[in-house]
Structure formats: structure tokens, C-alpha cells
């Protein structure tokens, strides 16, 4: 474990807590893409299948349980509990255009042709594009609540910090995973536009309004 990965995991944890608090306090899921949250639930489910077969540490196991659990709670909030506030008219990204190519790529490009490894690879590739429905929704609605912007900033920062973690691990541990690094770069690049808006606008108290 290194500081970059620890801060990255905490940033990821914070993002999920911000989202859940926003939903619970405002009793609303307005502006949140249910499709992205479904993709995240798929990401965690396919990545943490080794939850019961390989034990790394208490931290690792507890974080995995937390991520899987909260991802399903979030989907439940959107599609059941706070359904009346779900803005399905603006959450129209065709996720099949993500899942099919990502599934095919995971099948072709992976470290080992085994079920667990292919599912892990699928999860890594899917996570890199899972935020697209959410970013698409923000661009369609033309704006995002500031709390949603904080959620996206924390979520985008987590993988950016993982890039630093991989640089650190490459130099100090000789650890290198090309698939995770390439997907992590794609994932972080997708946030760049948002990062710019967040830093130039939200931090000055303005609301984000992506070009609709």
C-alpha cells in the first residue's frame, strides 16, 4: 500500500458517501445517471468475485464489501426508493454500446484466458467508460448540482491517484499491469473536461453548465 493508492481509495469512498448522502438528505436522485450506477454495480460485481476465494487484508475485503454493497443500494435508490425523482428522460445513453465492445475486448485482450481473469479485465475496461452516461446526462441537462460535481470530482480523482500509485509501484516494486494502466488513463482522460470546469467554476461558487 502507498499513499497514492490510500488517498485514491479514500477519494473513491468519499465519492460514494457524497452520492448516498445527497440522495438520502435531498430524498432525490435528480441529475444522477442510473445507467452509470448500474455499470458501477456490474464493475464491482465482476471485479470482486475473488472476495471469498482470496484474502488479501481486512482493509481489502472490507472495502470490497462496502463498494459492492453501496453500489446496489445506489441502484435501489434510483430505480425503487426515489424512483419518482429519477430523470430517465435525460438518462438516455445507450449502455449496450459500451458493454458489448468492452466485453469483446476483454475476451480478446487479457492477461490469461480464464473466467475470473476475463471478468476482471471486463471490469477494468468497463470502469474506464462507466461514467459516460453520467457525463452525457450532465451535458444534456446542461448543468449539475454542486453536490453532484463534488461526487464526480472525487470519483475522477480516485483513478487519477491510482495512476500515481502505478508509477510508484513500477519504480519501487517493479509492479506493472498494462491493462489497468491503459484503462486508468482512458478513465482519467474522460474526466479532464469536467476537472477543468470543476476547478474553474465550482471552486468559485458557480454551478457547472456543460455546453448542452
Amino acid at each position: 500500500m502507498n499513499i497514492f493508492r490510500l488517498v485514491g481509495d479514500m477519494s473513491h469512498l468519499l465519492a460514494i458517501i457524497i452520492l448516498l448522502m445527497k440522495m438520502w438528505k435531498s430524498r432525490s436522485v435528480a441529475g444522477i445517471s442510473g445507467k452509470s450506477q448500474i455499470l458501477f454495480a456490474i464493475v464491482f460485481t465482476t471485479r470482486y468475485l475473488d472476495l471469498f476465494t482470496s484474502f488479501v487484508s481486512i482493509y481489502n475485503t472490507s472495502m470490497k464489501v462496502f463498494f459492492i454493497g453501496t453500489s446496489y443500494v445506489t441502484v435501489y435508490f434510483i430505480y425503487q426508493h426515489f424512483k419518482p425523482t429519477y430523470d430517465s428522460n435525460h438518462d438516455t445513453f445507450r449502455v449496450e454500446f459500451l458493454i458489448v465492445p468492452v466485453g469483446g475486448l476483454a475476451f480478446l485482450v487479457n492477461h490469461e484466458f480464464s473466467l475470473l481473469e476475463i471478468l476482471w479485465t471486463f471490469s477494468i475496461y468497463l470502469e474506464s467508460v462507466a461514467i459516460l452516461p453520467q457525463l452525457f446526462m450532465v451535458s444534456k441537462t446542461g448543468e449539475a448540482e454542486s453536490i453532484t460535481s463534488h461526487y464526480l470530482f472525487a470519483l475522477g480523482s480516485y483513478r487519477a491517484l491510482y495512476l500515481l500509485n502505478w508509477i510508484y509501484r513500477y519504480y519501487f516494486e517493479g509492479f506493472f499491469d498494462l491493462i489497468a494502466v491503459v484503462a486508468g488513463c482512458v478513465q482519467t482522460i474522460l474526466y479532464c473536461d469536467f476537472f477543468y470546469l470543476y476547478i474553474t467554476k465550482v471552486l468559485k461558487g458557480k454551478k457547472i453548465s456543460l455546453p448542452a
Binding site: 493508492r5 481509495d9 473513491h12 475473488d50 482470496s54 488479501v56 487484508s57 481489502n60 472495502m63 470490497k64 463498494f67 492477461h111 490469461e112 481473469e117 476482471w120 491510482y162 500509485n165 509492479f175 506493472f176 499491469d177 498494462l178 489497468a180
Partner: peptide, 10 residues
């Protein structure tokens, strides 16, 4: 590149 490297990352 040892594939069976333990997946210790989240």
C-alpha cells in the same frame, strides 16, 4: 509478467 500476481488492488 506473472499473471498470477496477486490482485491486491481494489
Amino acid at each position: 509478467h506473472n499473471v498470477t500476481m496477486r490482485k491486491d488492488e481494489l
